[in-house]
Amino acid sequence: METAFLIVSAITLAGAVAAVSLRNLVHCVLAAAVAFAGLAGVFLTLEAEFVAFAQLLVYVGAVSILMVMALGLTRHVTAPAGARAWAPWTVGVGVALLVLAAVVSAVPAAGGPQPAGSGWVAAVRVMGETLMTRHVVALEVLGLLLTAALIGAGVIALPRRKDEE
């Protein structure tokens, strides 16, 4: 388990670093997809199956494709030559540190890491039951929102009637 965790976290970090440092935007997107997939691997080593598959489905399957589609609408895929500006770098590192601080401070609030063998499992059934009982309102609202967005996408694509034109 330790070895697997080290390998996938190395892949994730390498992908993330490549995503922000490569000069070709398409390479950046592909590297980001590698980082997303690596993160799914990290979730798997933590025995969070559902989160891992959702990560793969949403990030590799949808978010990176969204970035690819956005690239298709972009004129310059390769960055202009020249030295990298330092200002974006400092901002980026600052934001990353802020996020890290937020996550680290949130860990004790969530009850901290569960001791091994405490019988706590992130089984899909348990997650489903929690979602359907404790968090049912949030789930319903999210479902409604997504369905509305879905139908809205279809409505936008409908041809306009003659009198609207």
Binding site: L30, E49, F50, F53, L56, V60, S64
Partner: peptide
């Protein structure tokens, strides 16, 4: 446990 989700998750990687 999440077999159907797994199937769709790996299937989504093909698009890239």
């Amino acid at each position: 446990d999440a077999g159907v989700l797994y199937f769709f998750a790996v299937g989504a990687c093909i698009e890239l």
